[in-house]
């Protein structure tokens, strides 16, 4: 086992062995989650706080379930309705929570880098559950696990990521992870939704979806983030669907066994045709949700081990009589 980090703030800081360690452990939790009694005492006695400064249903419930299945005491804080509204700064919120001695903080925030900032100020392990348009590491890990299970490997695959790349932290984390595992990456989308300079990051950029999908092993669709757009990125949803929506005709250009992924929630008829999303032979969208809980359990398990080791070292230090 190699994963030694204090926090999980992004894929950027992980090496391929870390990723493999996390995914291998996740497999154990996939097994556990399929049993009737889905419980382990790995995090017994530990406190997990979910701080979501941005709306989330699926990620928050996935983390909540993961923590509960590992035996942690889980608390959800909806930061949109709390003291933040009264003018408290992010750092003060962090310090307040820190004083309650949590062991794991799960944080989502609308600004890039905010979770890094918060992690500097607390004594516990922090998992980034999405910061602005920066990273969403557990999403990339669950996508990787899904790919590895259905393709049998996580290298030398052609992965096409399609849609709203510019506003997507999922795309960034996936780009970094799949790049580290040596896959061929293609980004497909309108130029208005393509961040500047991505071609320098070692991926191929396509505007024509048909070209981009040719012979892909994995087709990863992204949600059109209408709430992050201050207008004018695409002319209309119907034109978007026509050019960049995934339908049977476009999917036929990918490899016959290509899988279709989507981080959810889906806009059916905008970026993906409903029948493709529901096609059990191609779509692994439900698997992604299942893997999400397992990956989050694995991440929390490893961070808790590191936290215990660190605290053990601190106790074993010079001692009281030093």
């Amino acid at each position: 086992m190699t994963f030694r980090a204090r926090h999980l703030l992004g894929i950027e800081h992980l090496n391929p062995q870390d990723i493999t360690t996390l995914l291998d452990l996740s497999e154990n939790y996939v097994q556990l989650n399929q049993r009737t009694v889905k419980h382990s005492d790995t995090l017994a006695g530990m406190t997990q706080i979910n701080m979501f400064f941005e709306n989330s249903t699926r990620t928050q419930s996935s983390f909540e379930l993961a923590g509960k299945r590992l035996g942690a005491d889980v608390m959800n804080m909806s930061m949109q309705t709390s003291s933040v509204k009264k003018g408290e700064t992010l750092i003060d919120t962090a310090l307040t929570l820190n004083a309650m001695h949590p062991d794991l903080l799960i944080v989502r925030h609308p600004h890039s880098g905010a979770v890094n900032l918060l992690a500097e100020k607390v004594n516990c392990a922090v998992i980034n559950a999405g910061d602005g348009r920066h990273e969403h590491p557990t999403q990339a890990l669950l996508d990787a696990l899904t790919i590895r299970r259905s393709k049998g490997r996580l290298h030398r695959l052609t992965v096409a990521i399609c849609g709203d790349i510019a506003h997507s932290r999922v795309a960034r984390s996936n780009l970094i992870l799949l790049g580290k595992m040596e896959n061929r990456l293609r980004l497909i989308g309108p130029r208005t939704l393509m961040p500047a300079g991505v071609a320098d990051l070692g991926c191929e950029v396509y505007e024509d979806m048909r070209e981009g999908l040719r012979d892909a092993d994995v087709v990863m669709m992204l949600r059109l983030q209408r709430e992050r757009m201050d207008g004018g990125f695409i002319p209309s949803e119907r034109e978007y669907f026509h050019r960049w929506g995934l339908d049977a005709e476009k999917l036929a250009l990918a490899k016959p066994d290509a899988i279709v992924m989507h981080p959810g929630p889906m806009n059916r008829g905008v970026e993906i045709d409903g029948t493709i999303a529901d096609d059990i032979n191609r779509s692994v969208i439900q698997d992604q949700v299942e893997m999400g809980v397992a990956v989050r359990m694995a991440a929390m398990d490893l961070l808790a081990q590191n936290l215990r080791a660190e605290r053990g070292r601190a106790l074993a230090g010079p001692g009281l009589w030093g």
């Binding site: 890039s112 880098g113 910061d131 602005g132 348009r133 920066h134 990273e135 932290r169 960034r172 961040p195 500047a196 300079g197 991505v198 320098d200 990051l201 201050d230």
Partner: peptide, 20 residues
């Protein structure tokens, strides 16, 4: 408007709103 970095590889990777 709203930009905090120069558009390019760095701003894209770090997800910072950027301006050309």
């Amino acid at each position: 408007k709203g930009a905090a970095a120069t558009s390019g590889k760095f701003a894209s990777l770090y997800g910072i709103p950027a301006v050309s």
